[in-house]
Design a protein around this nucleic acid. Structure first.
Length: 216
DNA sequence: TAGTCACA
DNA sequence: GCCA
């Protein structure tokens, strides 16, 4: 029996290793999609997608919103997690149970037990949207993994090293795929190539990504 | 450097 | 790779 056998999950059709502690779970989110979409509509109704500005003064091509106790935001002064939506002044919408369940199950399938996310960043990519290489390093607890769910149009995920200059692997991500990384891979640089327009049957010309984190 | 640009 |  190999180490991976210990992590087998009945709902995980296919697991790809992209690092010592990093995996792509192909199609893992598919059974959840019918519940995720209406929940997303509720979130968007409370806290609409918006294009935020980075500390460098540039507007992100990716539009975002959040759900859960904490939400990731950026402005001219830096990145941070906030309890309130800066646009509405109200708390971010609650994290739907189905979101938390998916994140927890995916983490477990990748070998990370008891993942309890308090933040879900929701990113919307339109054709041309991209995310340049960056690290997720604004979370208090770096022991918890990152769980990233892909819906809609496919994208090329870039998975680099611990330095920005390290070469990045290109990983295709499709509707329903879930990427999970943590442990020694927790601080690896990653990003998304400019999105190509290839309309998805369910979501049209967009890609939705949920990124679950333990921020505090 | 959660972005953009110039240049090889 | 530079810049800021």
């Amino acid at each position: 029996m190999t180490t991976l056998d210990l992590f087998q999950s009945p709902t995980s059709d296919q697991r790809e290793s992209i690092g010592p502690c990093a995996f792509v779970l192909r199609g893992f989110a598919l059974p959840y999609v019918d519940d995720l979409i209406p929940a997303l509509a509720d979130i968007e109704a409370c806290s609409p997608f918006r294009n935020m500005v980075t500390p460098g003064g540039f507007t992100m091509s990716v539009a975002l919103t959040n759900c859960g106790p904490l939400g990731w935001t950026t402005d001219r002064h830096g990145y941070r997690y906030t309890a309130l939506d800066p646009d509405s002044g109200k708390p971010w919408p609650a994290m739907p149970d189905v979101f938390a369940a998916l994140a927890r199950e995916a983490a477990a399938a990748a070998g990370f037990r008891d993942f309890d996310p308090d933040a879900c960043l929701v990113n919307r990519y339109l054709p041309g949207s991209r995310l340049s290489l960056h690290q997720d390093r604004n979370e208090r607890d770096l022991d918890a993994p990152i769980v990233s769910v892909s819906l809609g149009m496919p994208a090329t995920f870039l998975f680099g090293g611990d330095a920005r200059s390290d070469r990045a692997d290109r990983v295709p991500l499709h509707h329903g795929d879930v990427a999970v990384w943590g442990g020694e891979d927790r601080l690896r640089y990653h990003g998304v190539m400019p999105l190509k327009d290839a309309p998805h049957s369910l979501l049209g010309s967009q890609r939705i990504n949920f990124t679950f984190r333990r921020a505090s």
